[in-house]
Simulated assay, not measured.
Amino acid sequence: MADIVAAFGVTHAVIMIRTWERASRAHRDAVRAGYDEVARRLRAAQPDVVLMVGGDHFQSFFLDNMPAFCLGVDGRCVGQGDGGLPRYDLAVHAALAHDLLTGLIDEGFDLAFARSLPADHAFMTPVHMIFPQADLPIVPLFQNCTAPPLPTVARCLALGGAIRRVLAGIEPDLRVALIGTGGLSHAVPLVDWRTLGDDPVGRDWLAFMSAGRQGVDPAVQQRLADEVLRWGREGLGRISEDFDRELLAWMRAGEYARLAGLDAATIGRRGGNGAQEIRNWATVMGAMPGTRAELLFYEAVPEWLTGVAGVAFQ
């Protein structure tokens, strides 16, 4: 059987990368030390491959093709280079990816799949912060956390359980690390596409969500950039520290199933639309039954508009 040798949940806030120096020295030092501890534990576990669970922000998936789940198979996983990140280029562990795809379909999860799946900062922020050498092969598992309707948290927990069962029946002695990436509380300037009107603002957003940054004209890009700045100015990315600490307390107690009671509306109301990414952590939790999370760091960083955290699932 393949062995899960390490499992983590970490934040992937792109504004953290782009505006690192804006945060206080205390916040920067604590977050950097936390990610360094994740990196140390990952290396100590000596994984052969990292299964990364992340989302997308209309960089790789659009409204003309938005699967609930998509597994990257074969080839390379190349970063989009968004948010000031380098364009990381990682090998995909094809054998594990194909075994997972087949096994998860047999388990009743009809995943989409993509060769050489490109990835935005959802995947590449953890790479940048944890293994910037990009020397570990990965299997990228995309989950839709931005374009509702979203898969339920319960479904993500169940997917994690199926991943564990599939791993138990495949290549012996393969050492697998899991990283779920996203959240915690924050709000991003992305709107629910189902609510957009037939006006210039609505048409701008639909153009972006249908083609991404590279597919809209410069005028639309500028209008969207202005909207992003407005969100920051008006504090629309506010942090809900109470919500974050409640989730982290459940994790530390090993009460992962409690997350299944959170629907999308509750998560959005209490933690912001960016907190929907807790689904990526939930998939890892589902693969780690009977464990508890060790809190490695949590910082509510107003300059980054995000509750930034990292846990290790023991």
Rank of each mutant, 00 (worst) to 15 (best):
G83E: 08
R165W: 04
F58V: 06
T291K: 12
F243C: 06
P126Y: 06
P218L: 07
R40A: 15
P137K: 03
W250N: 10
V139K: 12
P151V: 03
V50L: 05
A39P: 10
G237Q: 07
H121V: 03
N65W: 14
P132K: 09
P140T: 07
S210C: 10
L262P: 10
L96S: 11
R252V: 05
P172T: 11
N65K: 13
P218N: 08
T152A: 14
R25M: 05
R203I: 09
A264T: 15
H57P: 00
V73M: 10
A30V: 02
Q314G: 15
R230V: 12
L196D: 14
I15W: 11
M209I: 01
A300R: 05
F58K: 01
E303W: 01
R245D: 07
A45I: 12
G261P: 04
E246M: 14
S185H: 03
F69N: 08
V50Q: 00
R43E: 15
V166E: 01
A112M: 06
D263H: 06
V191M: 11
L236C: 09
Q222T: 08
Q276F: 14
F58E: 01
E227V: 11
A312V: 01
G55K: 00
H186K: 00
V5E: 13
A300H: 11
T125D: 03
R87G: 06
M52S: 10
C77A: 14
N273V: 08
D120K: 01
V216H: 07
L63T: 03
T291I: 00
A225E: 14
F8W: 06
L157I: 13
G81T: 07
G212R: 06
R245C: 10
F297N: 10
L296D: 07
Q46H: 14
R76G: 06
H27F: 04
S60A: 15
S185P: 03
H93M: 02
D82K: 11
F123V: 03
R223A: 08
G83K: 04
A6T: 13
L229Q: 15
V38C: 09
F109Q: 09
S240K: 03
P47C: 07
R194E: 13
P140G: 05
R164T: 04
A33R: 15
V38W: 11
S24E: 09
